[in-house]
Simulated scan of single mutants.
Amino acid sequence: MAALRDPERGCAWDQAQTLESLAPYTLEEAYEVVDAIERGDLAELKGELGDLLLQVVFQAQVAREAGSFAFDDVVRAICAKLIRRHPHVFTADGSLLPDGPDRLSLAELDASWTASKAAERSDGGGTDLLGSVAKTLPALTRAEKISRNAARHGFDWPDAESVIAKIREEVDEVADALRHDDNDHLAEEIGDLLFAVVNLARHAGIDPEYSLKKGNIKFESRFHAMAALIGEDGGSLAEADLPAMEAAWQRVKRSEG
């Protein structure tokens, strides 16, 4: 990467990049890693992880040229953080605990990790009670993290059934907002409804982003199957009315068992 960024012998495209211009590529590569994992394609995953690693190397090189930090500093920093956040495995100097790791439960490990993060924020002057959740995360993922952090302060529903009651309340508020000519208020109420649904997913132990992806895939599959059924009956999607499409849709659902 240093050679590619060399002002005299490097590549013009690589030379022109900045941290800001690279940011979208980083997101894209991360999504492609997740896609390879979800498809179970390990050969593809190997390549995608390399592409993601390139973004780390690339941005570290840009930072090094600016006199800020280099790739080695990135690696040292994450190693130090892993040691610091795993006191049940490592001593303060990074050695393994002489008697082996403390056998903590997953809940205890989560509490320890959270306490460590809170201490780091405190040392750094941070004051965000919700943990400074990155604003660039997908909205569903960010909502889950915000609500999870709020729950650690005791601000949470006691169980999933309580969240369902909240969802029904939010549906009623959306319905009421629909009766008024105020798109900003309607958007706000729909946001409240989506946030409540994210909390239901969290209480059920479901990743809302993954769940919606599965829902998207299911809809796409059923839609294409619906169109195929209409075609088999001698019609076309372009000419079919809503009752015909709904009838074909229900046939698709029944065929899925």
Rank of each mutant, 00 (worst) to 15 (best):
H88I: 02
S122G: 06
V171C: 09
S236M: 08
L109K: 15
A160Q: 02
S221N: 11
V171Y: 05
E20P: 04
R222G: 14
I206L: 13
R142V: 04
A43M: 06
G191R: 09
E161I: 04
K46R: 14
E108V: 04
V57Y: 13
L4Y: 11
L193S: 02
A115S: 13
A150C: 00
I164E: 09
L52R: 12
E29L: 05
K46F: 14
V133Y: 06
A225R: 10
G67W: 00
D123T: 08
E108F: 03
E220F: 07
R76P: 00
A150H: 04
V62T: 05
S147T: 11
G50Y: 10
L242C: 07
A23L: 14
L200R: 02
D72V: 11
L82K: 13
G10L: 09
N216P: 00
A80M: 10
E246V: 15
E169W: 03
G126N: 04
H224I: 11
L53G: 04
Q61I: 00
G257F: 08
G124H: 06
K166N: 05
M245P: 07
F71A: 12
G47L: 06
E20K: 10
F223R: 13
G234L: 13
F219T: 11
P24V: 00
R9C: 02
E169H: 08
D41H: 12
G154F: 05
K117E: 12
S221T: 13
Y31Q: 15
P98N: 04
G100L: 07
Q15V: 04
D51P: 00
F58P: 00
E65V: 01
K213N: 12
G235E: 09
L109W: 01
G234D: 06
A3V: 12
P87L: 08
A80D: 09
A115C: 03
G10A: 10
D172L: 11
N183R: 14
R179T: 15
K213V: 01
L54H: 15
A177G: 05
W249E: 02
A240N: 06
D207P: 13
H203R: 13
A63V: 00
D110P: 01
P24K: 05
S112N: 05
R84E: 10
A139Q: 12
S21K: 00
H88D: 15
S105A: 10
E108N: 02
F219G: 01
G235L: 13
L186C: 04
G50E: 08
G191L: 07
A16W: 05
D241E: 09
A228H: 12
R179A: 15
S68Y: 00
H224V: 11
L200P: 15
A175L: 11
R168S: 05
N216V: 13
L27S: 10
H86Q: 14
R254G: 03
A160G: 01
E169P: 01
L193T: 10
P208R: 07
R251I: 07
D156P: 00
T91V: 03
H203T: 07
S132V: 01
V74I: 06
